[in-house]
């Protein structure tokens, strides 16, 4: 994840408390989604950014995952995201995200 974005995630978690934060991702594939999830759950796996060694355990979901999708206004999701369900491998992404959440999510 971009180093500046990592910095903002860290600052916002400190400001609002990690228990109040949800991270939503729009990654193009399962691996990218997994890398970003790992970063905000367990720490930066590339050892480059401010989240290196910081295990925030934040709630994190991909925007196409059922858990969060059911909470969106249907019409907004339809217009903004739905087409991408035909493009992305949503099952793959979910599986990857879930494996990281099972291991590291604290909330």
């Amino acid at each position: 994840m971009d180093l500046e974005n990592q910095k903002r995630v860290l600052e916002l978690s400190e400001e609002h408390g990690p228990e109040n934060i949800v991270v939503l991702l729009g990654a193009a594939d399962a691996e990218g989604a997994g890398l970003a999830a790992e970063t905000v759950l367990a720490g930066d796996p590339t050892y480059a950014g401010p989240l290196t060694g910081v295990s925030l355990g934040l709630r994190v979901y991909h925007v196409c995952e059922e858990e969060v999708k059911q909470e969106f206004d249907e019409a907004v999701y339809e217009e903004q995201v739905s087409m991408m369900e035909m493009v992305l491998d949503v099952d793959d992404i979910h599986e990857e995200m879930q494996s990281f959440r099972d291991e590291y999510m604290k909330f």
Binding site: M1, N5, R8, V9, L12, H16, N20, I21, V22, V23, L24, L25, G26, A27, A28, D29, G32, A36, V40, L58, R59, Y61, V63, C64, E67, V68, E71, F72, D73, V76, Y77, Q80, V81, M84, L88
Partner: peptide
């Protein structure tokens, strides 16, 4: 999961961009 929580959006130019996700999050 989303209601009344602080949402951080990390979009992807080749997946779903941040602005589109933010609109969804606000709708929830």
């Amino acid at each position: 999961i989303l209601k009344d929580r602080k949402i951080i959006v990390i979009g992807d130019r080749d997946g779903i961009p941040g602005q589109a996700i933010a609109l969804c999050a606000e709708s929830a």
